[in-house]
Design a protein around this nucleic acid. Sequence first.
DNA 1: CATGAATGAGAATTCATTCAT
DNA 2: AATGAATGAATTCTCATTCAT
Lengths: 176, 176, 176, 176
Amino acid sequence: MRVIARRGMTAATMQEIAEEAGVAKGTIYLYFKDRDALVDKTFERAITELLKRIDAALATEGTFEQKLRASLVAKFSYFQEHREFFRLYHALRYPEGKRRTQKQYDEQLARMASMIEDAMQSGEIRRMDSKRLALIITEAISAVMIRRVVEENPPPVSADIDLLMDTILDGIRSHS
Amino acid sequence: MRVIARRGMTAATMQEIAEEAGVAKGTIYLYFKDRDALVDKTFERAITELLKRIDAALATEGTFEQKLRASLVAKFSYFQEHREFFRLYHALRYPEGKRRTQKQYDEQLARMASMIEDAMQSGEIRRMDSKRLALIITEAISAVMIRRVVEENPPPVSADIDLLMDTILDGIRSHS
Amino acid sequence: MRVIARRGMTAATMQEIAEEAGVAKGTIYLYFKDRDALVDKTFERAITELLKRIDAALATEGTFEQKLRASLVAKFSYFQEHREFFRLYHALRYPEGKRRTQKQYDEQLARMASMIEDAMQSGEIRRMDSKRLALIITEAISAVMIRRVVEENPPPVSADIDLLMDTILDGIRSHS
Amino acid sequence: MRVIARRGMTAATMQEIAEEAGVAKGTIYLYFKDRDALVDKTFERAITELLKRIDAALATEGTFEQKLRASLVAKFSYFQEHREFFRLYHALRYPEGKRRTQKQYDEQLARMASMIEDAMQSGEIRRMDSKRLALIITEAISAVMIRRVVEENPPPVSADIDLLMDTILDGIRSHS
DNA sequence: CATGAATGAGAATTCATTCAT
DNA sequence: AATGAATGAATTCTCATTCAT
């Protein structure tokens, strides 16, 4: 995970992975059929943990706003702990050499869309294309989160979360 | 450009690039110092054209809303013409193997931020962190645009543009 | 034996041998110094059984013709039982990577040559180079026997044995 | 060819082949897709030359005896020139694994069988199973020829040829 | 200018062998 | 005695780069 996150999916070598893992090159092949399998499995594992956290947040009781904020907190804290994974998350969306998005990413979008529809039903948010909204919200959040990872001195997490919630819910237009 | 866009920055081989260009491998080295230079220059060239269009849109007279919409139209129409480049644009943000973002990306963000500040000054939009807003808006737009590229039957461009403008300006909260 | 016969002396892996034997890889090294020793010993064992049968046939009382036929029957019936070993027998003659023939093969040839000399002495067969004759006869027999192993529907054993005896003893020339 | 003949089909390494050929490892891959292709093609090439010579001998006018002797001379002189190939010829018959390079060998046997049938027709040799005879004769010849390659001081070629012709045509039985 | 054959450093993969349990 | 996880040397293969033509 660390090596792939650091070097990227193509540049990571079996040698470096072995060294980082503290085993010999050959040992890796006892656990993964080949390099491809290793990358795939590693990728899946890294992302599964994140999605589990986000789903847990979305599953809590409360208003849409509360759930959205909770999922946002989950995402931010995950990357706070695993700064290196931002590149994996990045690749999740449009993996090299494939035109399709990753299944897990699409599933997460679908869950977000369904939550949005519920909120529309309850009148909490306006009626709009739920799938597109899910995409826009997810990526807006990711953008800030990924940016934080590479920033020397990012603002407090709460500031970014508040800004995102504020922008998503009320837009940027002035209402004076 | 085509090969790099198709295969990705790491997977593109000099052989395939030469074939697509209709020249011999060696010939490439008459025009580029090495593979790195080729990738960098190609990347820059692909992106410069896009940024030029966006900047032109931003430079027009009018309200913030008008300029934002114009830049959005520019971006969408560019990728309508160059579907394959979405992967390059993708890489623009966090190039493999580097922790830094690409200079051009940061510059574009800065221009957007300064436009946002002008709009805040004029009272057109609320006072918020302009840099973060620039990031959020840019990425929300990119998310939809990139998604369109891989969609079989994307909705009409105007629908996506309207949705984005609407969401960015007014948020998703219901005001009944 | 089975694995080496099936895969060949070079392609057989310790892993597959261990699996077929129902033991762990490491266990093999309690019984054989290394892979080379295993292959050599296995080879020897497989061939010793065959040579014992042939020698028994040659040791019976009777005319040269009777003894030759008996040894032929022994050889054919052995490979009838152990079809997979033909590849081992094949390697017996000119082992890969060595220029020398296998000792046991040479010894068998020598025994055959001495039997031929006895038959010359007794006037049963013509005076010719006994060593070359032993070689020619042995290989002619092997050729048919090996061919039988790979044939879908080989002719009856007796037909092949009769043909070989006939050809060896009387040649192919017409005497009409 | 030389390396494969010397080391065997499995033990020959790309490194040694490259060195013997006086090129770099990578260069080989410009001419052969992979190791397998190299071995197959090399093998085929080595054998084609031999079979061409034998066929030329068989195609001459004359009695069966004359043609057989001519083909025998061809075979002996080929291996006189290319001593190292005996191992390739050896492998031709029952290649490790189950490669189908065997085809050329089978074709040659078929040609020999058809020549034998002609000789039976003309009454020059006795009526017997022509396919089995072709096999027996071919392998008897090969046996002597291969043995010559590994012998320190082989007898004169003519002696071996005479012995083979004599044995094949008239058998070993005494007619006193 | 252009070529493309040749290069060789570097990466992935295999497998005989070891050794702590 | 037996195990099998771990090792790493050896091998195949890729591809950016060079250079004689």
